[in-house]
Simulated scan of single mutants.
Amino acid sequence: MRTAKTAAFAGVLTAMSVVLLFVGVIVSPLSYVLPIATGLLMILLIESVSVKSALLTYFSTSFLSFILFGGKETVLFYVFFFGYYPILRLSLSKIKIKLLRFILKLLIFNVAMAGVQLVLIYVFGIPFDNMFGKMGIALFFIALNLIFILYDFTLDMLVTIYDKKLKRKITGIIK
């Protein structure tokens, strides 16, 4: 019975993730916010079930979103970073030197965001236009880095809140 409940829980979170990404595709201003929110759902799976379930949900959501949606920017943000980062954080948290851990997180994030932009430009033919020129591109990446730092801090807070207040309730429902 536990396996069925776990699969159902992962399926529901996959469906919620796909719906959130769909809304991000439809409502343009949310195309950056909803991949972040969708990534936060992974915390529930990682903490309540397992990393394996979180990975399956990540791959399922990525696959379904690419097939179903025309707006690729939202999906690419999820696929390239926000979907798997909560899972990757577990490995990165084992690095004892905080500065090294922080630099590595920023490096992974920036490589992923550059990858998103390159895929958008060279695969999907979507130009990276900016009315502010090269300075605007630099400001865009600075803003993305600030958002990432807030996101990482938020993940830490959510894990703490989840462990203290929700874990027992959700694990009780699943098991």
Rank of each mutant, 00 (worst) to 15 (best):
T3V: 01
K5T: 01
A7M: 03
A8H: 02
A8E: 04
F9G: 00
A10R: 01
G11Q: 05
L13N: 07
V18C: 05
L20Y: 02
G24P: 07
S28T: 10
S31F: 00
L34M: 10
A37P: 06
M42H: 08
S48N: 08
V51C: 13
L55V: 15
L56V: 07
S60L: 14
S60A: 15
S65H: 07
F66T: 12
I67F: 15
F69I: 06
G71C: 04
G71L: 02
T74K: 01
V79P: 13
F81K: 05
F82K: 08
Y85T: 09
P86L: 13
I87R: 11
L88T: 07
R89V: 11
S93Q: 14
K96P: 12
I103E: 01
L104P: 02
K105F: 03
L106I: 08
F109I: 02
N110D: 11
A112K: 01
G115L: 00
Q117Y: 06
V119K: 04
V119W: 06
I121N: 10
F124S: 08
P127Y: 13
F128G: 08
D129K: 14
G133N: 04
G136N: 12
G136I: 09
I137T: 13
A138G: 06
A138C: 10
L139H: 04
I142R: 09
A143N: 09
L144I: 03
N145Y: 02
F148Y: 12
F148W: 08
I149G: 04
L150C: 13
M157D: 05
T160F: 10
D163E: 15
K164V: 09
K165I: 00
K165G: 02
I173M: 03
I173R: 01
I174N: 03
